[in-house]
Amino acid sequence: MQPLYPDIKPYACHALAVDDTHTLHVEESGTPDGLPALFVHGGPGAGCDASSRCYFDPTLYRIVTFDQRGCGRSTPFASLENNSTWHLVEDMERIREQLGIDKWLLFGGSWGSTLALAYAQKHPDRVLGLVLRGIFLCRPQEFHWFYQEGASRLFPDYWQDYLAPIPPAERGELMQAYYRRLTGEDQIAQMQAAKAWAGWEGRTATLRPNHEVVERFHERALSIARIECHYFVNDAFLEPNQLLRDMERIAHLPGIIVHGRYDVICPLDNAWALHQAWPNSELQIIRDAGHSAGEPGIVDALVRATDAMARRLLRLPNGGDA
Rank of each mutant, 00 (worst) to 15 (best):
Q192N: 06
V264W: 02
A305Y: 03
T204V: 09
Y11W: 08
R62C: 07
D161W: 08
L302N: 12
P10D: 04
S79D: 03
D269M: 13
L88F: 05
G294C: 11
N318A: 15
T204D: 06
P58E: 09
F146P: 02
T206H: 03
P10K: 01
R203Y: 03
D235L: 13
I257N: 14
Q276G: 10
I95T: 07
L243M: 07
Y147S: 04
T21G: 03
A17H: 13
A151T: 02
L174A: 13
H25R: 09
P6T: 01
E248V: 03
T85Y: 01
D269F: 14
I135K: 10
G45E: 12
H87P: 11
R53M: 14
I135N: 12
C54I: 07
G260I: 14
F66V: 06
Q192T: 04
E90Q: 07
A198S: 10
Q160L: 07
V299I: 09
P3Y: 05
L117W: 07
L60R: 13
A193S: 11
N270V: 12
L222S: 11
E212K: 11
A46L: 06
R304T: 00
T21H: 05
G172E: 12
G199W: 05
Q121A: 13
H14Q: 02
T59V: 04
I257V: 15
G109C: 04
P279R: 10
V18R: 00
N318P: 09
P165S: 13
D7Y: 05
